[in-house]
Amino acid sequence: MTRALAAVAAIPDDDAAAQKSGMSPRVSHAKPFIAFEKVSVRFGKGDKQVQALAETSLSIHEGDFVALVGPSGCGKSTLLKLVGDLLKPSTGHVFVAGREIGATPIRIGMAYQNPTLLPWLTIRDNVMMPLKIVAPFRSQFRAKRRGEFRDRAEALLAQVGLAGFGDKYPWQLSGGMMQRANLCRALVHEPDLLLLDEPFGALDQFTREELWQIMQELWMAKKTTVLLVTHDLREAAFLANRICVMSARPGRILDDSPVGFARPRSIDMTYEPDFVALNQQLRSLIVAARGGTGIVQAGGH
């Protein structure tokens, strides 16, 4: 085990044991924010049935930044959709804030690889869209759209380096800029939980690294609980506090390890031996998970 991992090595054993029993893990925290209890997902019927997610139990604490990595089609996104209440588990339960999903009044922000900004709205109006929909804000939307809400959107845009772009339309922006605006849209309603599904996957390396740093700043400022699905191991190790490695379909969690690097983390840090070692360790896990053939997408080396 590397030095960086050793710094927080006391926790994972607890965690792993707690997961096996399906009970609340870490003693220091009262209740997990998100808990998967023996959740599995199957698609289709009869012969065509596909098991997307094998029985999985997983707990995530409030304010944690968890990355899910694994081979393509392993059910990472399925896990994300379960938390977003976009998909019902075939068996088991998903609890958020102690209550079954769907019954919880938490606010969720979501961002996909495809920025899906609405082309007929300005960047500012796109960012403000959640305020028009989500409960405590929607009743005030008419009154505050030109005041407080507008300022809030502008402040967020400035934070990601898009100051002055509020009046532009999505097609006037580059891919990286659209993805920044997409992040703003996912954060404007101050979600309790942020779901990211390969949000930086379509960007070039330098833009991606820039966005990692922005993402880190945003997270350090708000400490929102984040669940990040990615196949970029460097991204997972740079951003997350904890990395869950999933197996090939039907997905299960093979490994669950904390990432102990001090924040704020810099891009230079990703070339240091500890970081590289963690990447290699993750990579070998995934190579094994997909049957030891081929090359893992992205990753360290």
Binding site: L86, M110, Y112, W120, M129, P130, A135
Partner: peptide
């Protein structure tokens, strides 16, 4: 786009919200 629909659904948007703000425009 299904991704956009997912984003709207996680915001707990009703069918009507999605229709009015996304689908119709």
């Amino acid at each position: 786009e299904p991704e956009l629909e997912d984003v709207m659904k996680t915001l707990k948007a009703s069918k009507w919200d999605i229709l009015w703000n996304v689908s119709l425009p």
